[in-house]
């Protein structure tokens, strides 16, 4: 992984039934970890609440894995699925 200068980005996906406070909790956690939100979009997919965020993860205060675990825990609390994945996953899979 190239951790120097270059910007590293990750995608946060939230899937589940819509509830009060999902966005607030997720964004608060991202802010705590110093993950800057670059873009955010929300849609309904088959009645499922879907939020996708593109965040910058070059200067995380506590590392990628910790952020990942914390988001997962919030997901469990709110009964939604939250995933944090490096943007490379999507770039590789869908682009040449």
């Amino acid at each position: 992984m190239n951790n120097n200068n270059s910007q590293e980005r990750a995608v946060v996906t939230v899937l589940g039934s819509d509830k009060v406070g999902i966005v607030a909790k997720v964004t608060a956690t991202l802010a705590e970890h110093n993950a800057n939100i670059i873009d955010i979009s929300q849609t309904l997919l088959d009645d499922l609440f879907t939020m996708i965020m593109l965040v910058e993860v070059s200067d995380l205060t506590n590392g990628f894995e910790n952020l990942n675990e914390e988001l997962e825990a919030i997901g469990n609390d709110l009964e939604v699925k939250i995933m944090l994945q490096h943007e490379k996953v999507f770039r590789y899979m869908h682009r040449i």
Binding site: V11, T13, L15, D39, T43, T50, I52, L54, V89, F90
Partner: peptide, 17 residues
């Protein structure tokens, strides 16, 4: 967005279900 929502959801769905 820099990524297509459909693409992201497609990938997530592959893994999740």
């Amino acid at each position: 967005m820099l990524f297509n929502t459909g693409e992201i959801l497609e990938t997530v769905k592959m893994i999740e279900s």
